[in-house]
Amino acid sequence: MNVSAWFGRNKVLERVNLAMPERTVTALIGPSGCGKSTFLRILNRMHESVASAALSGEVRLNGEDIYAPAQRITETRKRIGMVFQKPNPFPAMSIEDNVAAGLRLTGTRVSRSDKADLVERSLTRAGLWNEVKDRLAQPGSALSGGQQQRLCIARSLAVDPEILLMDEPCSALDPTSTRRIEQTIAEIASDVTIVIVTHNMQQAQRVSEHCAFFLAEQRTPGSIVEAGLTKDLFGSPKDKRTADYVNGRFG
């Protein structure tokens, strides 16, 4: 809601207003450098971890502004999880411990059997259980790129978030892994709201129901040009710039 963002004196986002309905997949598309990732990071309060970052406006989860002083960052980040572009499992931990890392880090205590159940459930939701169930004790870094990314998804799901943010999760992966992850997204979309930033327009069409097109013209901060149902944005875009982008005429 009216979110603007700065890095130092550089304004990178201008009054972005977007409603992301629950239990749907919303895609944020647009050319590089238009502020999509910044916007995503604002949604789970990662933006402020950069020293010179600042923002204005509100982000409301179920009506409450997550930036209100009374809200604890750690609680917010538990409810709004994030998967990054480059898979980043904790290499010093086994696969099992990686998935359960969210519990350890937030100080939640669970019994051993509960932990094992949670690990199995999260890995199944992420579509990785069958491939790793025999080698849960191996270190997290021993997997392929696509598997590592699914491990990161499982890790984020283990803390039971309401929203999962995904910052170009497939851009570092090959097409087969990409497809597997898109399948995973489809499977979890029924209980988790997903917001995915992607460069790949076909992917946006495949996985999302809602879409927002970001653009930053020369030296102006980024903003949303058009937002709505994916099929409308791609099929009958209202703005000429949207039409140019989705038809591959730039970006």
Partner: peptide, 17 residues
């Protein structure tokens, strides 16, 4: 960042990463 994104405190992140 992965640790923070899971809702970790600063000390939790230091301990794990």
């Amino acid at each position: 960042e992965a640790a923070y994104a899971l809702g970790s405190t600063r000390w939790g992140m230091i301990r794990t990463v």
